[in-house]
Write a protein that binds this DNA or RNA. Structure first.
Length: 630
RNA sequence: GGGCCCGUAGCUCAGUGGAUAGAGCGCCGGCCUUCGGAGCCGGAGGUCACGGGUUCGACUCCCGUCGGGCCCGCCA
């Protein structure tokens, strides 16, 4: 509630003096009061009066009411072109803020907006033939943060990871094993995802130059169509093994999953058949009889405002096989709960938080009811905007509405030219290079985390000569994850991230570790406090600027979470967390706590405690682990 | 050719109709006998790509131009 309570009170005041549907917003500068109304500008348009006159008039009437002193809002003043600025009785307001934090604790700022509605989130979805690179890392971090956000706002969540185990990107690796002397087992010490990623890059180059290898690849592709073939069996083995390592990386980043959907199962479980029947019945698809697509089943895009400018999309090729988009439509239909048919599962394993992960399995006996999700979010980078729009269009043909299915697109992560050169890239002119699995040009999530971790380890061991290795490792790992998650969340999703390892390995300034450091400082104060019940409820003394500033930013949390959810603006979490910590650090510099006189000390302790609560609520949604010491 | 996204301080980016355009890095100068200097304070640094328009008010909305990126396959 907090600042929203002020807004509410200001609105009521405006209404009481006759302003209908008043506009109240948080002031951009405390010099303009705590909240501000811009309604006089609107009113001026409807009448012939000047905004400033209206503002003065309204503020005067409000002042008559606030004079009584029984509200949090203390006064209203007209300002320059036509604003009405509301000031606050801070002694009273401080108590309100702190009481709310005290009562709501780890729920402070969050809401029950979802009220049990289900949201299904797909993220990660990396082909199981390589390790996760930074682009995948951005996906996992965005997806997992969405999961945390929805959960915090009262939604039931289902997190799914699409495992594209189809033959196409696997066949290369089969060729390497069959013909180029690569062993199925990796050289000792090499992770299996790293191994396959390396093999994949090396063999793709070889295939490009050899007709013979290409025809072998084609043959293997055919064999992989048959689930009972020896190649399919090997394929299952390889993908399982790679997946288990990919999942370790995801867990390392702090992510968790409910379901692993194997792409091959979309066909095995006849989800496509049911979807296709529905598509035919709805009239959304047709079989082309002439032209270049003769013999293919197409989805009709002619009534789509944008896609109609291009050709219709092939769903079933003339040889009867399915395109990627076709399977994606069926998958989306399943995700939104449109289909009668459903998967069965086996238990694949457990998340670090102890919850089970299910994997689709024809012979599986486990069932999972995903319900009919109100929201389905698919986290995929912007290059899939068009195919995702095709999927949306297909769904809207099936349901009559397009609501509920959201493509959460984000820009890719590229490498700075400096980093690319370090990886042996020697061509081109630009300032960045796109990562490519096929070219073997990428930085893995684990490599970057290890780099960050080594920096953090240096710092931590410099400060804590008494810590043992386990302790140092544990703390450094959490710092590394915080740094990476923060940096990925910080940037607008519409902007490409050009990753540069020397810049990214910074642990100072506007970073995840800054939050952790600030939290640790606050913990020291509470820890050294002589008061048994640290941060207990006490009276509010006269406030100094730094105390007011901290209280103010703390009170914004409910409005921030609401904004993040409504606008799906994850970066707002980082700017807020940063401003929160900046305010605390200023408070820390200018307001001694432990050495202050008892009344002030106890209030500052309560404020410090409140700060740690709000910061940990925000950090928890960001997936950043705070640290008592670092 | 069609469609989408981006262009703000030297660099990396916030700011999505309101009052003096903000952070971080880098640079210059300060602050540890006081709760952790992974911090704090101050300074220099901006024709918000450019040109029109809408509005009481535009970095923000609309149109155009110029740069940069992405997408348009019986690939996934």
């Amino acid at each position: 509630m907090s600042v929203k309570r002020l807004i509410h009170e200001a609105k009521e005041l405006m209404e009481r003096v006759g302003v209908r549907d008043p506009r109240i917003e948080i002031s951009k500068d405390p010099a303009f009061g705590e909240v501000t109304s811009t309604s006089p500008f609107e009113l001026a348009r409807k009448t012939s009066r000047k905004p400033i006159e209206i503002a003065e008039d309204v503020a005067g009437k409000i002042r008559e009411i606030t004079k009584a002193g029984d509200l949090i809002i203390a006064d209203a003043m007209a300002a320059k072109p036509g604003f009405i600025n509301f000031t606050v009785n801070w002694l009273k307001y401080a108590r309100v803020i702190l009481d709310e934090i005290r009562e709501e604790g780890e729920r402070y700022g969050l809401s029950d907006h979802g009220r049990g509605a289900t949201v299904l989130i797909e993220h990660t979805s990396v082909n199981p033939n390589k390790p996760l690179h930074l682009g995948h890392g951005r996906n996992v971090i965005i997806g997992d943060t969405l999961y945390r956000l929805f959960r915090a706002m009262g939604y039931r969540t289902v997190v799914v990871n699409y495992i594209d185990d189809s033959g196409n990107q696997m066949a290369d690796i089969h060729v390497a094993f069959k013909r180029l002397g690569y062993k199925v087992d990796p050289p000792s010490g090499e992770r299996y995802d790293e191994y396959c990623g390396r093999v994949y890059a090396e063999v793709s180059r070889a295939i490009e130059e050899s007709q013979d290898l290409l025809s072998l690849k084609r043959r293997i592709l055919g064999e992989l169509e048959d689930p009972t073939s020896a190649s399919s069996e090997l394929n299952k083995l390889i993908t399982d093994r790679v997946l288990s390592f990919q999942m370790r990386t995801c867990w390392r980043l702090g992510a968790r999953y409910d379901i692993l959907n194997r792409e091959s199962d979309i066909v095995s479980f006849k989800l496509w058949d049911e979807t296709f029947t529905m598509l035919v019945r709805s009239g959304a698809v047709y079989k082309a009889t002439e032209g270049k697509d003769a013999g293919c089943w197409m989805i009709n895009l002619r009534d789509h405002p944008v896609l109609s400018k291009e050709d219709d999309e092939v769903l079933i090729r003339s040889d009867g096989t399915l395109t990627y988009v076709a399977r994606d439509v069926a998958y989306a239909a399943w995700k939104t709960g449109l289909l009668e048919k459903d998967f069965t599962y086996r238990v694949w394993g457990k998340n670090p938080d102890g919850t089970e992960i299910l994997e689709t399995d024809l012979r599986g006996e486990v069932r999972f009811d995903r319900g009919r999700p109100e929201i389905v979010m698919t986290v995929v980078d912007v290059r899939q905007r068009r195919p995702q729009e095709v999927v949306r269009h297909a769904l809207s043909k099936l349901t009559g509405t397009s609501s509920g299915y959201v493509h959460f697109g984000y820009e890719v992560v590229a490498l700075s030219i400096e980093d690319a050169r370090k990886l042996g890239f020697n061509e081109g002119e630009g300032e960045f290079v796109h990562m490519s699995g096929r070219a073997g040009l990428y930085l893995t999530v684990d490599a970057v985390l290890d780099l960050l971790k080594s920096k953090a380890l240096q710092e931590a061991s410099r400060r804590h000569s008494d810590w043992d290795n386990d302790k140092l490792e544990e703390v450094a790992e959490k710092i590394a994850v915080a740094a990476l998650r923060y940096s990925m969340l910080k940037q607008d999703t519409d902007k490409m991230i050009v990753f540069d390892s020397s810049e990214a390995s910074r642990l100072v300034g506007d970073t995840g570790p800054y939050l952790q450091y600030t939290y640790a400082r606050a913990c020291r104060i509470l820890e050294k406090s002589p008061v048994r019940e640290r941060g207990e409820r006490v009276g509010v003394p006269e406030l100094v600027k730094q105390e007011r500033d901290l209280l103010r930013v703390v009170s914004y949390a409910p409005a921030v979470f609401e904004e993040v959810l409504n606008l799906m603006l994850l970066k707002r979490l980082t700017t807020y967390a940063h401003s929160l910590c900046a305010a605390f650090n200023e408070f820390y510099e200018y307001c001694p706590v432990l050495t202050a006189e008892a009344e002030v000390r106890d209030f500052r302790l309560e404020l410090t405690k409140a700060f740690t609560q709000v910061l940990s609520n925000v950090a928890s949604v960001m997936g950043i682990t705070l640290l008592n010491e670092m």
